[in-house]
Amino acid sequence: MTKRQTWLALMCAVLFQQPALSHADEVKVGLLGQFSGPYSWWGKEYQRGVDLFLDQSKGKVGNDTLTVVSRDEGGVNPQRTRQLAQELVVRDHVQYLFGTAFTPNALAVADVANQTKTPFLIGNSGTSSVTSKSPYFIRMGFTQWTVSVPLVQYAVSHGAKSAAIVVADYAPGQDAIDAYSDTLKKLGGTVAAQVRVPLGTTDFSSYLQRVSDAKPQAVLLFMPVGPMSAGFIKAFKDRGLDKSGITLLATTETMESDLPAIGDSALGLQTALHYSPYLTTPENQAFVAAYKAKYGKDAIPSIASVAAYDAMHVVAEMVKATHGQKDGDKAMATAKGLAWTSPRGPVSIDPKTREIVQNVYIRQVEKIDGVLGNKPIATYKAVMEPWYQAHPTTVQ
């Protein structure tokens, strides 16, 4: 047994021998998020989604009161995330965990979830294999495969048979390469070039030159939300690659939070994603209205706030099933196969993979009431996580 496993075992013994410090009928949820630094947008949006759910439910599930304890991961820091998860479960006696914005941080929670049987609802991690690391993991966001496959299907159906793949060089970027290239080849297309861009890049000129030299019909892009997304899209337009006949297609890169920085360079850009605040369903319109009422008329919900809002819905169902008691196995059994109508559309939890089954929307950046936004123009319904469909033996 490693030192870390020994420490965890001792902490688990403390956890299960000591009485809970929370008052009777209180169920605690631990929120792990980025509340400081360049990716603090994630933490803010998670908190907003959680708080909106608590407002609407009055913080109650039957006779139980939901309390959320938030902690700052402080960047891509697996060691810190693991420590925070341990403290939340052992010291703060949370029954459920939610959050993280990066794959390494999500993976760091596996030991804690496994040894304490604590359900962990992952807010964001695009790497498909993550949920195979613990039977107590549930993904509330999306994988890069989930949105990449429909994007390629859409591109090919609209005449793009040759594409350059441009990704940020980290784990979800490799998933994007695999998903884009595998799907493109299956549909009879060709990969003109694969371009990996180091994280933190601000000058994209050499990478765009490689794209230009490859002469593809399209570019399939993956960049993390934030400066790299905005920088690449603006550089692509400034270099005139769109005018040379190359179509840029992406996924999360035109988040409403990034569109002001990108500006009109984003107009017309088409992306594939599982949510848009401009969905016209009654559930989403009610969600957007409530979000604006709470956070201001210019506030716009996002994939992060929707993930948090839906995660709290799942937690509430698990609390009902366990009558507020800590029972990770019963809670997970309740979540498997759970179906409801989310602001993002009809969703369910795949009982085999614990991945969320959801619509993927093709969105186009337009000016909507004078503001840049992603308007849905096509729908791929009830998309099951494609990587697990191709790798069924990896499910834990």
Score class of each variant (00 low, 15 high):
residue 255 M to L: 12
residue 254 T to V: 13
residue 265 S to C: 02
residue 236 F to C: 08
residue 250 A to F: 04
residue 238 D to N: 14
residue 285 Q to A: 09
residue 270 Q to T: 07
residue 272 A to C: 08
residue 282 P to D: 11
residue 273 L to H: 11
residue 250 A to R: 13
residue 264 D to Y: 03
residue 278 Y to F: 11
residue 285 Q to I: 01
residue 269 L to H: 02
residue 261 A to R: 08
residue 239 R to Q: 15
residue 265 S to M: 00
residue 247 T to S: 14
residue 247 T to C: 05
residue 234 K to I: 08
residue 242 D to E: 14
residue 289 A to R: 02
residue 239 R to K: 15
residue 243 K to R: 15
residue 271 T to C: 08
residue 267 L to K: 08
residue 278 Y to C: 05
residue 261 A to L: 00
residue 238 D to S: 14
residue 261 A to E: 02
residue 267 L to V: 07
residue 258 D to H: 01
residue 270 Q to E: 11
residue 232 F to K: 13
residue 274 H to M: 08
residue 243 K to N: 14
residue 266 A to F: 09
residue 252 T to C: 00
residue 263 G to R: 00
residue 285 Q to M: 15
residue 253 E to F: 05
residue 269 L to I: 15
residue 242 D to M: 03
residue 245 G to D: 04
residue 265 S to A: 15
residue 286 A to E: 14
residue 231 G to V: 15
residue 287 F to Q: 06
residue 243 K to C: 08
residue 274 H to P: 00
residue 274 H to G: 07
residue 233 I to E: 14
residue 237 K to Q: 14
residue 284 N to D: 12
residue 236 F to Y: 15
residue 289 A to Q: 11
residue 232 F to E: 07
residue 257 S to E: 03
residue 252 T to K: 10
residue 258 D to M: 01
residue 238 D to I: 07
residue 267 L to S: 01
residue 272 A to V: 03
residue 231 G to L: 15
residue 237 K to G: 07
residue 244 S to K: 15
residue 263 G to H: 02
residue 270 Q to M: 07
residue 281 T to F: 04
residue 252 T to D: 10
residue 249 L to H: 03
residue 230 A to L: 10
residue 233 I to K: 05
residue 238 D to R: 15
residue 270 Q to R: 13
residue 236 F to Q: 11
residue 250 A to I: 07
residue 258 D to E: 10
residue 249 L to F: 11
residue 249 L to D: 03
residue 259 L to M: 05
residue 261 A to T: 04
residue 284 N to Q: 13
residue 269 L to E: 08
residue 243 K to D: 14
residue 272 A to G: 08
residue 273 L to T: 06
residue 249 L to T: 00
residue 239 R to V: 07
residue 277 P to K: 09
residue 248 L to P: 08
residue 286 A to S: 14
residue 257 S to K: 10
residue 241 L to K: 09
residue 246 I to K: 01
residue 249 L to I: 02
residue 260 P to E: 00
residue 260 P to K: 10
residue 274 H to W: 10
residue 280 T to D: 15
residue 265 S to V: 04
residue 267 L to T: 05
residue 281 T to G: 07
residue 231 G to H: 10
residue 284 N to V: 07
residue 268 G to P: 11
residue 284 N to Y: 13
residue 245 G to Y: 04
residue 252 T to V: 09
residue 234 K to E: 08
residue 283 E to D: 11
residue 254 T to Y: 05
residue 232 F to L: 15
residue 277 P to D: 03
residue 287 F to D: 02
residue 247 T to L: 12
residue 252 T to E: 03
residue 233 I to M: 12
residue 268 G to F: 06
residue 263 G to C: 02
residue 287 F to W: 05
residue 264 D to M: 06
residue 249 L to C: 01
residue 244 S to L: 13
residue 263 G to E: 06
residue 253 E to R: 01
residue 282 P to F: 09
residue 254 T to K: 06
residue 233 I to D: 13
residue 263 G to D: 01
residue 286 A to D: 13
residue 260 P to C: 05
residue 280 T to H: 13
residue 279 L to S: 06
residue 276 S to D: 13
residue 275 Y to F: 14
residue 264 D to W: 01
residue 273 L to P: 00
residue 252 T to F: 09
residue 287 F to H: 09
residue 283 E to Y: 04
residue 232 F to H: 10
